[in-house]
Design a protein around this nucleic acid. Sequence first.
DNA 1: TTTACTTATTGCAATATTACGATTAATGTT
DNA 2: AACATTAATCGTAATATTGCAATAAGTAAA
Lengths: 110, 110
Amino acid sequence: MGLTKTEIFTDQQNEISLFAKVLGHPARVAILQHLFKTNSCVCGDLVNEIGLAQPTISQHLKELKYLGLIKGNVEGTSVCYCINTHNWTAMKTVMTAFLNQDITENQDCC
Amino acid sequence: MGLTKTEIFTDQQNEISLFAKVLGHPARVAILQHLFKTNSCVCGDLVNEIGLAQPTISQHLKELKYLGLIKGNVEGTSVCYCINTHNWTAMKTVMTAFLNQDITENQDCC
DNA sequence: TTTACTTATTGCAATATTACGATTAATGTT
DNA sequence: AACATTAATCGTAATATTGCAATAAGTAAA
């Protein structure tokens, strides 16, 4: 099937998994790290920085944009991409809450 | 192709994306949340709790185990699964460091 | 307007993921 | 041993993802 049954999970579970999924590819991790490092960036830079073809990078950027983690503005013939700090912070809040679930002393039972 | 070019990324980028990837399915998020909530759990409980078939749950458990986030011990005819707190903490450290990258004031340039 | 430059989109091939029925393996019970 | 119970594995179908060549679309400069 390859089709995730999202309807049987809570909105929260689906939200966490969607955020995690978009971070689940090293190219997208690399893109985000590069945007954090340089503050501002055009797509061409990313094609040079990362070793993937331009259409591939463009596709990854599209996914990051769809989830709202980055935004892009046209600047002449190129496009300036950067982190959407508001949405990044919101994502961080969701993910951190999940990662910081209480590990009680009863864990590691087996 | 469907084949990720891991060789062109850093070990850190690949590690982050692997952790994120395993969290990138709501069933695995739900399994982890259930293990956190109950401290100890057999697979049968998870099949009842989550609405997926037993082989599907078993497959998701296998992936979580492969990444080291959970461990399972045989207890009679059933298997007791629980969070591997040591590895969970290690994963949390890696992911938190990525999520907490500095957002400088120069961000949101576009 | 022609040319150059940059990014997006399309189309496609290859691999990966998700899900589950059927079966197997492993253990406990009678 | 025969049976019951539980989880893992196998096999398979359907969908998703990744990657890129080719092309299109958009803007700037000559």
